[in-house]
Structures are given as C-alpha cells and as structure tokens.
Write a protein that binds this DNA or RNA. Structure first.
Lengths: 340, 340
DNA sequence: TTGTAAGCGTTATCAC
DNA sequence: GTGATAACGCTTACAA
C-alpha cells in the first residue's frame, strides 16, 4: 500500500522492489531468483520470471556493483583502435568475455603512457573485476595503482620473464630477429629498418634486427629510420622516398609493421622500383591486405586473436580462483610471400 | 573515533568518508569541493584537495551513478570495429565526449539488429546519460526501450526526414546516385553494383545506383551481385573473378565500399585486367589506402569524423538543455581518382 | 559556507 | 525456502 515504495521516481525504472511488491514478496527473493535460481522454489521462481518480463525489469548495474563490489566488467586498454592488430585482439577478448557474462570497457591510450594513466584513473572508478593491459611499460603511478587496487591484471602482446606478473604474448625481439635472418638468408646485405609510432615493441623488433645483422656481420648503424608519428600507408609511401634518397644502395627493408610496408610497396610501384628485384620489402603483423597486394608482402604473422582469447581466459581464471601468475608465449610465424 | 566508519572494508578503497574523517569535516563538503569547487571556501578546498591526493581518493562511479541518477557515460553502438568508417566515427565522438567529462561505452553489434538489442539491454543497466546509435533500422523492442527509458538518442550515418528524432549523417541514396552518374558521365554503360555485408546503407546506395542508371536509360536488373558475408579485400578479389565470369561485358563496377574495390583492383592486377581501361572500379567511403593503390581509387568520401563529432555534440545538447530534435545532413563528396 | 538526514537499487548477513 | 535489516559510497534535499 505504501505509495513511496511503489515506483522508483527518479529514473522511471522498474526496480527489484517493484517486482517484489507486484508479487507480494520481498526484493531479496526476486534477486535470488535471478542470480541463484536453485535457491528459490520452482513455483515462485516461475511467477517471478514472468513478472520480470511482464514489468520489463532490467537490473541496475550501479546498484549491483555498489552492493556486491563486483561489476562483471573488465577494463581493456589498447594503444589504438585504428590498428587492425588491436581490433583483432579485442575480438579475441570479447569471444571469451561475453559468453561468461562479462562486459569489456574499452579505453584507447593512443600509445601514450600518460594517457593510459589518465584512462586507468577514470576506469578504476568503475570497479572493473579485472584489467587487460597492452605491453609491459607503464608509468610508476599506474604500477602503484595496480598493486594497490588488488584487481587481477594480465599484460598482453609481450612476454616478460622477470616480473611476477601474468602475461600473454610473444617475443618481439625473436620475431624481429627471425625475419631479418630470413632476409640475410635470401642474400640481402644492406638491410634497412624503418619504424613509425615508436613504442616498446617496435624498439624490441629493432633489437632483434640488429642482433641478426650483427651475427651475419653486416650491421650498419645508419640503416635505421625512425619517425615518431603514427604509422600509416601514406607515411610508408613518403618513407620510401626518404629511404631511396638517404640509402640508395639499400637492397632490402624491414618495416616495423605492414602499413608501412604496404605504403612502401605502393610507392615503389609508382616510382617503378622493382620489388623484390631492386628492393625487397617485408613487414610485420600480417594485416589482411598484405596477402593481396602485388607482390604480396612477406611478414611476421602475430597471433593476436589468440592473445586476446588467452589473456581474457587467464584473467577470468585469476578472477575466479586465485590462479598463480603465469606467462604464455604464443609465438609467431614467418609468412614468406613474394615481396622479399 | 568510530571504527566502522574509518575505512571501507570490502574494496580497500579510499572513500569520501575517509577523506572527510581525515580532515574532521563531513563527506558532503568533500563531495562539493570536487564537483562544485565554488561552493566551498578557498582555504578548506585547498586542504581537501591535498588530502584527496594524499590519501589517493578516487571517486566510485557506481555510488555516484546510483545516488545522482547520472553516469557521465554515453552508450555508442556501432556495427563493426574492424571497419575504418566506424573507428573514425568513434574518434570524432571521443573528441567531443572526453573534454566534457563523458565516457563512451562502446558496443559492437556485428551488423545484427538482434545483437544490438542484446547489447542495448545490457548497457541500459549502466544508466547511460545518452545513446548514439548507428543507422535508423532497429528492432521493435529497441524502439520500445528507447522510448521508455527517456534517455536522449542520436542516430548516426543516415538522415531520416520522417520521424521525430535526432540524426546526423548523409543521404546514402544520393551518394550512390552521384557516383553512378559520374560513371555514366564518363561514358560507361554496363555498370555493375557489388555489395557485401548487406545492411540498410548498402541497400540505399543500391537504390541510388538504380535511379542513376534508369535516368540514363541503361539500367539492367542482372548487374547486381549481393553477398551477405562480411566485406573484405579478399572477398573483393574473389568477387572480381565472379564478376568477370558472370558479366564479361561489364565495363565498370561500383563497389558498396572501398575494401571490395581494393580487392577487385588487386585481383585485376593479378589477372592483367587494365583499370580503368578494361574495367573501371569505384568504391565508397574513401578509406585511407584508396589514395595509394595503383591506380588510386575513385570513391565517395563520407564525413565520418564529423558525423561522430556532431552527433556527440547534438547528444550533449540534448542531455543538457532540452534541445528539440533536429536533423543534420553532413553530405559527402565525390573523390575523382584514376580507377574510374 | 557547512552540515544532517535520507535514499539511490541491490546484495550480504543473519534470522525464521 | 523466504524475509528483515543493514550496508555499499555518494548526492539530493533541506537546515543551520
């Protein structure tokens, strides 16, 4: 009868209380019927369920999160949404999270640790049950927050042997080394490395590149081109011009990613530079388009779907039982095509 | 002195109460110092601010949302995250939302109205202050929920003159008609339309295509190829094969998007089909790569950043004051390049 | 300018 | 198996 309990006024939303009142039972029972059906008698449960649909009840996430200190959501921070690599990683993550009833809260850090810190600050207020981070390099404050908040974290994309943390990825160093060795094996000797959007992973690929050239006895310091701007096909095209000007004797180039490699290839076509005849080109990541250009691009295929899936899996295990930290190396594979 | 008030036990989180107790003041004052600084004396505000940083207080979103019935978050539902178009739209949205203190909750509907309904059901529980939806076609239940929940909605990508709703986009029909007229103007007469990932917008572009051909007196029903699978470069390549087999006399093709056009172009290169000599190709959306292929691709540039920005802007206005529904047509432009 | 009281919608805890 | 009660952390009233 009490009027003030009949309807939540503010939002016009149907509450648990409304459903309970409608059936003459208490709110907690409705809650149980939804969360732990086996704890409610079958007949009552049926009545509750139909009332729920009839009244159009939809749970209030904020209230649930506040009362239970869980949010059924997982924070995912990636450096970019325009990079196919991270979009694919996100698909893998969703594939695991959604069926288990979790929501992904997606944040874009734009390759900036400071931006990452800002995003983490905001999203931590959403009480995520778990956190998925890209890479191993984070600001001190981020590390502090992560340590303090007690929320499980899995790091994606790279493998770190040192720290006592969970991570799923591959050795960026090894991958850079393998593809450079491949070029050396093909007989190329004056091999350039071209990188844009400098980040910890392009740095490690560069180290792999250097190691491979050193072991082959053909390392030259001046063969690297670094630009800090975001990577793109257009940038690849202009870097081909720069490469040809600065290193006219160069016979092969390892691009830190496939966008750059595609742009270089397109520009070679424009400038009538034969690929791989005059210049061999290889990339990194095996983006979808790289199999279709002419010639198709030799590259390193990275298991990003799998990284997303396995990282999400590992995170959920960490959330449920207290599974101890583990490292998962998903490797990579050399995709030999015709550009190098 | 009261022990139970000193620390929120469950989460180990620092609360407003903790900060207040630390300073010997009341929680509401701390709240005010953070939300409406001008309502707190300068000296006290300074003390509060330093205590906040010292203790590492971070607001609890769930509690705030529950108490205030606002969430400072906006739900954004897009059909795909692997399509550059929607990624760009999201950037535009972020550009407006973030500086105004809003968070975007991103949902991927995978081009499915049912999936959209599911996502909306879940995300509505997060009490978004506003909603940004893609397209004008939604399930009856979605329309019902949107009408009931009283949250402002802006529809993106298309323009609807009929309904009393807010939308920001362009006329997909007109764009399809303009590019087809362009082909006709260039002298092509046996023009095919190829579409993948059938959605309301590719349907409308097709109608524009038909209208243009009818007015030129060269419409033929059999010149359309439709496949329901997701669009990709690889699919474009295989559809080129199919086109050449089924319509060997075809002299130009309008692809419903640039992915398909790029794939067709690459496959033409493989098969030594001259573009545009033997077959003219044009696409839709002007994706980044289309300017760099050889030949570069003639296409329709869609203002997707601007759509995101303006839609977010319109939504925020709707959230703040009760700005009346409006339509915003951002148009499109024909980008003439060398493929057609 | 500051504080008190109540309540947002849900769940944990402890009774019955 | 079901219910009463008290939180969860914050903000909207309304006082002082």
């Amino acid at each position: 009868m009490s009027d003030r309990k009949s309807r939540s006024s503010a939002t016009g939303q149907v509450t648990l209380q409304d459903v309970a009142l409608h059936l003459g039972i208490s709110a907690i029972t409705v809650s149980r019927a939804l969360k732990t059906p086996q704890r409610v008698s079958e007949t009552l449960r049926a009545r509750i369920m139909s009332a729920v649909t009839e009244l159009g009840y939809r749970p209030n996430h904020a209230a649930r999160s506040l009362a239970s200190a869980r949010s059924d959501s997982v924070l995912v921070l990636v450096p970019s949404l325009s990079n196919e690599v991270f979009v694919d990683t996100l698909s893998g993550i969703h594939e695991v999270l959604i069926p288990r009833g979790y929501q992904a809260l997606i944040g874009n850090t734009h390759y900036s640790p400071q931006e990452e810190e800002k995003q983490l600050g905001v999203f931590l207020g959403h009480n995520p049950d778990g956190i998925l981070l890209t890479g191993l390099d984070h600001t001190p404050r981020v590390r502090q927050w992560l340590a303090d908040c007690g929320v499980p974290v899995v790091y994606m994309m790279e493998i770190d042997d040192a720290r006592d943390s969970r991570c799923v990825g591959l050795s960026q160093f090894d991958a850079g080394q393998v593809i450079t060795r491949y070029l050396v094996g093909k007989g190329y000797r004056r091999i350039a490395y071209v990188a844009a959007q400098v980040d910890p992973r392009t740095l490690k690929r560069a180290e792999g590149y250097r190691a491979a050239l050193r072991e082959a006895g053909c390392y030259e310091a001046g063969r690297e081109i670094w630009v800090p701007t975001p990577s793109s096909i257009g940038l690849g095209a202009s870097l081909l011009d720069r490469l040809l000007k600065e290193q006219p004797d160069c016979d092969a180039v390892f691009c830190c990613n496939d966008d750059l490699a595609q742009g270089m290839l397109f520009q070679c076509q424009r400038r009538k530079v034969a690929v791989p005849g005059q210049l061999a080109i290889c990339g990194f990541n095996d983006l979808a388009a790289s199999a279709w250009t002419n010639p198709p691009i030799t590259t390193i295929a990275t298991p990003r779907y799998a990284i997303g899936r396995e990282a999400a899996q590992m995170l959920l295990s960490a959330i449920d039982g207290d599974m101890p930290p583990a490292k998962l190396d998903l490797g990579f594979s050399l995709v030999e095509r015709l550009s190098a």
